[in-house]
Design a protein around this nucleic acid. Structure first.
Lengths: 338, 338
DNA sequence: TAAATTACCGGAAACGATACCGAAAACGAT
DNA sequence: ATCGTTTTCGGTATCGTTTCCGGTAATTTA
């Protein structure tokens, strides 16, 4: 595997390497004909400027790193696609790494990308409350390394970030259940050390308070993020004869698990128990009953994150900016009184 | 953003840059104490060998490129995770790019990665029959660039590849429907220019031949890969009063779309029409009725692809090897006569 | 004790590009 | 013909490493 280099092209044409370089980066003075000749011969010889050498001599790599906790769910996949759509037309290359919900792995990923001199980073951290990594990230950020945080990060963080208004929309989701007349409402929450979980819990509680639902009529059960975990919780509730009228789940997967378990025990959805999910997936419309859920604007979030990053890259003195996004409450069969 | 360089470390300790370099790549002669001293001071100064410069002066990048057509479905996400699990412990970094099912984009991705001097590539091509890109890939491969192909590639290709035995398992899926006693069986296939589609069609036909199903009793309908497309086809069939007893779908998403449309038209699954999917997703178990499907060994496929690539990287003269994988037929409610 | 190894280290040439500096050529005006 | 400008180009330092080459000093061998 040997590459054709700038020298080979220069030698073949009896011109200097500088001229070849100029031909490829048309910002310096070069005669039109020689430029075209060089570009043509270079093409014929299969020459392409070596990006690694380019990175070394310039201070820009045109690489952007994206670190996500997982992409097995649709959410981050959609976000990444949007990020690429903004960045790639501008000549940036998007390097994706996934941390498998593991903080240690995440730190490794970020370090690898920084050592590879990415021009900027978009990070969606794993679990935010044990944020031993956050210090490192913020330190890098304060040293002038452009970073945008996404999704799972506290609003107080002083850095550019794109968030979803979890409190508000979990409030809306819960209120929707209340307005439908359901009296006993449980929330199957995500892990307590995940800040999005806490925000959704918060919204749930606020709705309960506003509508003065008595304490005995609602419950928050820490569940997790997988369908199996939703199933387990429902199993427990059935065993304890503690079935609510309505369930608000931390995500669609848990909601689907819950629905499955309810149905298999002869409990009808929504006639006996209403269910609503969060972070809508393509599946929401496909299952029976169709699942009500909150749709997050994944594309917009990715797009915004990329734009905020570009601002940081292009403008050294750019003050950080926080974008809090809103979603859509899609009401479907699973939470509608027939 | 300025990095600490090898010179800074050398200057601080009054040693030469060569010594610092030696300390980090312990293959040259260096006294134990100086090595330790250098490593310690480097650590304190926050020095880390610049991978870009390293790449330039060595001929190895320890980067592996993975190009997939999409990762919004679980399949490639799971494959990628497995690839990472093999490669990362060996010090490799996995760069992921997605082509959005677009051949042009795919070629760009591959070129970007090659220009960035990845040590090897794992490619899952988009549509294989218009394989204008294939020539380029094979050319690179023959020039000594390690490449492993995945999933959507013809068996005759002379390069290392990891495939799933689509013919065999679509035959099994179809035969399962026949054995259940269904007489009129339709296949909602993927695009005809996708070789996995053709293989699945092939298996379907072979099962029909083996069991001597008359020509009028089966049909192959080119559908696509999305739930909406499955829905549309069912809508058409209902309109034409042409409802089969059983449907074998090219993937789970199409199967779910089909089931949804059938149910919403009062057609019961599996009592009136049986449905079976392919490339099992997590959703298969969560919907009602639970969906029968063929599970592909995603982790094993990723693992194997990574291993084949390593062999090529480590052993220049390595002959190419093809691995054809088998799956599991998971029979669930959607294709079981009650 | 002299000679031959060996252990350790510094200097400098790559790697493949960009970018600054200055010089030659072309051009126009006087 | 002379001079000043502009256009076009070559030489070379530079980016941060690795790695080869050679040279001491220390150690072993004869």
């Amino acid at each position: 595997m040997k590459h054709v280099t700038i020298k080979d092209v220069a030698h073949k044409l009896n011109v200097s390497v500088s001229s070849v370089s100029r031909a490829f980066n048309d910002k310096y003075d070069i005669k039109k004909e020689t430029k075209e000749l060089i570009l043509k011969t270079a093409e014929d010889m299969g020459y392409f400027p070596n990006p690694i050498a380019k990175k070394l001599s310039q201070n820009k790599t045109f690489n952007i790193g994206v670190v996500v906790p997982e992409f097995i769910n649709e959410f981050y996949s959609e976000v990444i696609i949007a990020i690429q759509e903004v960045l790639m037309p501008l000549g940036y290359q998007v390097l994706i790494m996934q941390s498998d919900e593991n903080a240690e792995q995440e730190l490794k990923n970020v370090k690898t990308l920084i050592h590879n001199m990415v021009d900027g980073l978009i990070i969606a951290p794993t679990m935010e409350e044990h944020n031993i990594n956050m210090k490192y990230y913020l330190n890098q950020h304060n040293n002038g390394n452009p970073i945008v945080f996404m999704s799972r990060v506290d609003e107080s963080l002083s850095a550019s970030k794109v968030l979803f208004n979890n409190k508000k929309w979990s409030f809306f989701a819960t209120e929707h259940l209340i307005r439908q007349g359901y009296q006993k409402i449980y929330h199957l929450s995500g892990y307590k050390d995940l800040c999005v979980s806490n925000d959704r819990i918060d919204g749930f509680k606020r709705a309960m308070n506003k509508h003065k639902i008595p304490k005995d009529n609602f419950k928050i059960i820490e569940t997790g993020l997988l369908a199996e975990e939703g199933m387990e919780v429902i199993e427990d509730l059935i065993y304890m004869h503690d079935i609510p009228n309505a369930i608000f789940c931390v995500n669609d997967l848990v909601a689907m698990g819950a629905i499955k378990k309810l149905k298999s025990n002869g409990i009808r959805v929504p006639e006996d128990v209403a269910v609503i999910g969060f972070t809508e997936t393509r599946m929401a419309e496909l299952i029976t009953p169709q699942l009500s859920s909150i749709k997050q604007p994944t594309s917009e979030m990715g797009k915004k994150a990329a734009e905020l990053l570009l601002k940081q890259i292009e403008n050294e003195a750019f003050e950080h900016e926080t974008v809090v996004m809103n979603g859509v409450l899609n009401i479907r069969e699973s939470s509608l009184i027939p």
